[in-house]
Design a protein around this nucleic acid. Structure first.
Length: 256
DNA sequence: ATGCCCGCTTACAGCGGA
């Protein structure tokens, strides 16, 4: 069972690339982030024609997440619990083929310090609480998404280049590690323990041709899911296409 | 030190992204 996470950076701008990638890699579940459209405007019929069911939690202009699946999915959570005033569409969760799968778009948090960084850390605290409730169910679960956290210094081409960025502040990393201590396994890290794997390359300053990237798209596996881990990686070549997203898809394969 | 590039919006400039 192949589960992937892809920050597409705009549905309208990226639909051809999305369809190509689905056809080429045929994930069983695709968690999308930054769909940047309201739910009603997501191209459900086109995605259905490509062989995928759609669950969509959209938002106008920014954010927005979706879960595409070859098998029917049952929605289990829309929006991250813990703050009724939070109107940003950054969390969607469903059960697919017996596995609980979440599509996560964690706040960027820049500039830091500041209210956006506070929101990021508060959101991560809420995620920590909800993730604990998922572990308590004992169901195999996968938290897949754009975490906007560079976990380690070997997850970026140059730690100095992003030293003051919200993505690699100690508070961000500590909160991410808190999920690991809770019992979640970073699938790509487990398969590639030496690091050096990137999932994002900035549009600016020739970051892609220079391979100046970092890893912020992660799939966290519950113990029951981690026991079934076969392989994990990043579809790097997707980043090299015309009109590509600035993210490449990250994926994990679980034994059925 | 700043902007580079990209996608979005009751758009033709400004914001958010990372």
């Amino acid at each position: 069972m192949r589960i992937a996470s892809f920050n597409i950076n705009g549905t309208n701008a990226r639909l051809p690339r999305l369809l190509e990638w689905l056809a080429e890699t045929q994930p069983d579940v695709a968690c999308l982030q930054e769909i940047k459209t309201v739910t009603e405007n997501f191209p459900v019929e086109t995605i259905n024609a490509a062989g995928y069911h759609c669950l969509v939690h959209g938002q106008k202009g920014f954010n927005g997440v979706a879960i595409l699946s070859r098998a029917p999915a049952t929605e289990t959570q829309r929006g991250l619990p813990g703050d009724d005033a939070d109107e940003q569409s950054r969390y969607l969760e469903a059960e697919v083929e017996g596995v609980r799968v979440a599509s996560i778009y964690l706040p960027n948090g820049n500039p830091q310090p500041g209210p956006k960084f506070d929101y990021k850390l508060a959101w991560m605290a809420r995620l920590h609480a909800h993730a604990a409730s998922l572990l308590a169910t004992g169901q195999p679960s996968v938290l897949a998404g754009d975490y906007n956290v560079i976990p380690n210094d070997d997850d970026i081409w140059s730690p100095a280049a992003m030293r003051d960025d919200a993505l690699m502040q100690p508070e961000s990393r500590t909160a991410y590690r808190g999920l690991l201590w809770q019992g979640w396994t970073d699938a790509i890290r487990a398969v590639h323990p030496r690091g050096g794997i990137w999932s994002y390359w900035d549009y600016q300053a020739g970051a892609w041709p220079r391979d100046q990237g970092f890893r912020i798209d992660h799939l966290l596996l519950s113990p029951g899911a981690a026991d079934r881990l076969v392989d994990a990686g990043v579809d790097r070549s997707v980043r090299g296409a015309e009109r590509a997203s600035d993210h490449a898809p990250a994926w994990a394969v679980l034994r059925r």
